[in-house]
Amino acid sequence: MLELRPNCECCDNDLPPDSADALICSFECTFCRSCADQRLHGRCPNCGGELVRRPIRPAKRLASHPASSQRVVKPAGCAH
Results as ranks from 00 to 15, higher is better:
L15W: 09
A22R: 15
D14Y: 07
R39S: 11
C35P: 04
E28C: 07
G42H: 08
T30L: 06
E50Q: 01
E3H: 06
A67P: 05
L4Q: 13
L15E: 11
H80R: 12
R39W: 06
P16M: 02
N13T: 15
A22E: 13
G42R: 07
I24Q: 15
A22N: 13
C29R: 06
L40D: 09
R61M: 14
A79T: 05
E9W: 08
V52F: 02
C78G: 00
L2D: 12
P45L: 05
D37Q: 12
V52I: 11
P6D: 15
N13D: 11
R43I: 01
V72E: 10
L62N: 05
A59T: 08
C8W: 01
R53G: 02
K60W: 05
C32W: 14
K74C: 05
P45C: 05
C32H: 08
S68H: 10
L2Y: 15
D18R: 12
S34K: 09
K74H: 08
C8V: 04
S34N: 10
N13C: 11
E3S: 11
C10P: 03
P55K: 07
N46A: 01
Q70D: 06
E50Y: 06
S34G: 00
L40R: 04
Q38V: 00
C25W: 07
R71V: 08
C32N: 13
P55W: 05
S19H: 13
